[in-house]
Amino acid sequence: MKLSHKQVKHIAWLARLGLDESEVDKFSYQLSNILKNFEVLQQLDTSGVLPTTQSASLSNVFREDKASESLSKTDVLLNAPRQKEDCFEVQAILE
């Protein structure tokens, strides 16, 4: 499995990850190499095997639908790069 530059750029777009051309080149090579090492899995017959998502054998966990104390607005906004009127601020999304 060889990853083309176009594929690398598509994955980076899905991940909202900016890459410069030298990174695209490097990842095309490195990721192809890593995926080649994963081929060992394709040789393994897993028909009839159920997937495992977590190891703790827990089923759904619920709690009472009751509000409890949470962080203050000041605390929540403490690390915000930009804020305005008690909100996180970003550039305009609608033109």
Binding site: F38, L41, L44, T46, V49, L50, P51, T52, T53
Partner: peptide, 11 residues
């Protein structure tokens, strides 16, 4: 990839 790896996890 992902589903296959989850099945291998079971094994």
């Amino acid at each position: 990839y992902y589903l296959k790896a989850q099945k291998v996890r079971t094994l």
